[in-house]
Design a protein around this nucleic acid. Structure first.
Length: 533
RNA sequence: GCCGCGGUAGUAUAGCCCGGCCAAGUAUGCGGGCCUUUCGAGCCCGUGACCCGGGUUCAAAUCCCGGCCGCGGCACCA
């Protein structure tokens, strides 16, 4: 077969086994999992996308969807991807100073890079300029009604008295706003929309409002500005100024597109293409920003933002989920308006495949029971075991497990595995030897060495169990998130675990994957977080 | 309540625009087997879905209408 040229081989396969070729084709297709084409790409010189988070908190898996998809599209079309911080509400959604940095970090962790970065609170003069332009074109006015008064007009589909002001009057009032003449709630800039709109929230929506920054200083600009653009104004303007061509955002923004369209029309701009994405949920964790904030607050600092019960990217990172898995999941979920609940099983499976080959394996025992094994030969090959860290990846090295020189060898096995010993009379200590039950006392079990032959164990159907030598062990505390609770399992683990550093992912044989979080070398104790089976 | 967007196996997704090649593909889960010094990985076999009802058509997951369900929106938040 190999004597044939590649072309001849292909020909042969095509003739004799066309279905094979089809299979290969499909396999390739699945690996690539290309995104659907973006609409109207040919209309634009270059594709430009953006991710525009509010830096009032850390970002979570739900935010990763628009971020990653926007980035991927920009890459696919060799365009540009922009990061824009939308921090124009120092009062209700006050920016969190560390969030700017944290969001950048989290995006980088996801493998996202951006060529341009903007912070809206540093662009205030730009928004004022566009506001003036809009006002002078008659597209907006300064409303001095009380909030309730305006609501009445709105619900009756009537214009408020200020709506009829001339552009020059409006500009004057706007300048007065900027000069800090009005207090909060006393003046807003409203965009003129269709007064007959069915949805009242659409009607003459607020583009800029007064926020008393002497009371609510902005973390970046302090009290320098008192007139702040709303989301719809700032985002709408910026998408134009930054020449964004394709907006991918959550479907909660659907109505915002309609609102912003009024500004675009008034200024003679063309609105970018919009794709509304469904929400992403992650099974068994808290995703909502507000819920996380609540939990954080009520814990009084005991719970941190990377707590494994949260769906923040930091939590996922802490739980040992690799960023490629998140990327894979989001590409799988794709570009559509349907919500998706990501199952932890799915994440675990993808993650396991990714890390299995590069993850050292050590033995740990929970619910330990002491087993005294009599009759283990005293030759060093029986008392000093050289065990590889991975059965098929020798590059991970090995450790030496020392069993001491005394007559008996003592090991811990788990209470569950003890049942096999009691029931079957024999078990195999993995990578060591077979043992047979001899007796049982209050605090330990007695057994006899029964040879190292694996074939015997196989033939007889002995359960093969992991174990930890009593002569050299480390205590392990394993934190396991379960239904929004954290269980801490205590057990023993081979002392060689101390060789690994904090952050290292390991597999505890027959237990699951873990990530080391703390090493207390003097105390012979480690703390780890459970990742998945 | 009103408006918008959706509904393919337990979960996620392909197919829907352009009806037949779909008695519906893939991944995960679950069951079984092989392999393996793990209950992991890998390989093989099996399991399981087009929300409901009408209509159009020779033919509907795909088009049309109605219903149901889910999500989102209805701020001087983003």
């Amino acid at each position: 077969m190999n004597a044939l040229t590649l072309e001849e081989q292909h020909k042969l396969v095509r003739e004799k086994f066309p279905e094979l070729l089809e299979e290969v084709r499909q396999l390739k297709h699945r690996e690539e999992k290309a995104l659907p084409p973006l609409p109207n790409v040919s209309k634009y010189r270059v594709v430009r996308t953006r991710f525009a988070p509010n830096p009032d908190f850390y970002i979570h898996l739900g935010n990763a969807r628009p971020a990653l998809l926007s980035y991927e599209y920009a890459r696919e079309y060799r365009g540009a991807f922009i990061l824009r911080f939308e921090d124009t509400d120092p009062r209700i959604k006050k920016p969190l100073p560390e969030a700017y940095r944290a969001i950048r970090e989290d995006l980088k962790w996801l493998g996202i890079s951006w060529s341009e970065e903007y912070v809206q609170s540093m662009r205030m003069e730009l928004y004022y300029g566009i506001a003036r332009e809009l006002i002078s074109r008659g597209g907006a006015y300064v409303d001095l009604c009380k909030r309730d008064e305006f609501r009445k007009f709105k619900l009756e589909r009537r214009a408020c008295p200020h709506r009829s002001q001339s552009p020059s009057e409006a500009l004057e009032l706007f300048d007065r706003m900027l000069s800090n003449y009005y207090g909060e709630g006393e003046a807003v800039v409203r965009v003129k929309t269709d007064l007959t709109s069915e949805d009242p929230s659409l009607i003459d929506w607020v583009a800029l409002r007064v926020i008393d920054t002497s009371k609510y200083p902005h973390p970046l600009t302090g009290d320098r500005y008192v007139v702040w653009p709303t989301y719809n104004f700032a985002a709408g303007v910026d998408d134009k100024l930054m020449e964004v061509t394709h907006i991918l955002r959550g479907k909660e923004h659907a109505l915002n597109t309609v609102k912003q369209l009024y500004v675009y029309r008034a200024l003679g701009w063309e609105y970018p293409e919009v794709i509304n994405l469904g929400r992403l949920k992650l099974e068994g964790v808290i995703l909502s920003k507000s819920r996380i904030k609540e939990v954080l607050k009520s814990s009084g600092g005991a719970i941190e933002v990377d707590d494994p019960r949260f769906g923040t990217l930091r939590s996922l990172r802490r739980r040992g989920i690799s960023p490629e898995v998140i990327r894979e999941i989001i590409m799988e979920v794709g570009v559509k308006g349907t919500d998706a609940t990501i199952s932890w099983e799915n994440i675990a499976s993808l993650n396991r495949k990714r890390i299995d080959l590069s993850t050292p394996r050590v033995m740990a025992v929970f619910n330990p029971v002491r087993v005294v094994v009599r009759g283990v030969p005293k030759e060093s090959s029986y008392r000093s075991l050289k065990l590889g860290y991975h059965p098929s990846n020798a590059s991970l090295g090995f450790r030496v497990v020392n069993l001491g020189a005394s007559d008996d060898v003592e090991v811990f096995i788990s209470r569950e595995d003890l049942d096999y010993l009691l029931k079957d009379g024999s078990i195999r200590l993995m990578e060591f030897c077979n043992i047979a039950l001899e007796g049982r006392s209050r605090d330990h079990v007695e057994a006899r060495y029964a040879g190292t032959d694996l074939e015997v164990a196989r033939r007889e159907g002995f359960k093969i169990v992991q174990w930890v030598p009593v002569s050299g062990y480390t205590v392990i505390e394993l934190v396991k998130p379960e239904n929004l609770k954290l269980r801490v399992l205590r057990g023993v683990v081979e002392e060689s675990i101390m060789e690994f550093g904090v952050g290292r992912v390991l597999q505890l044989v027959r237990v699951g994957f873990i990530k080391l979080e703390r090493l207390y070398k003097e105390k012979g104790r480690v703390r780890a977080i459970y990742i998945h089976d």
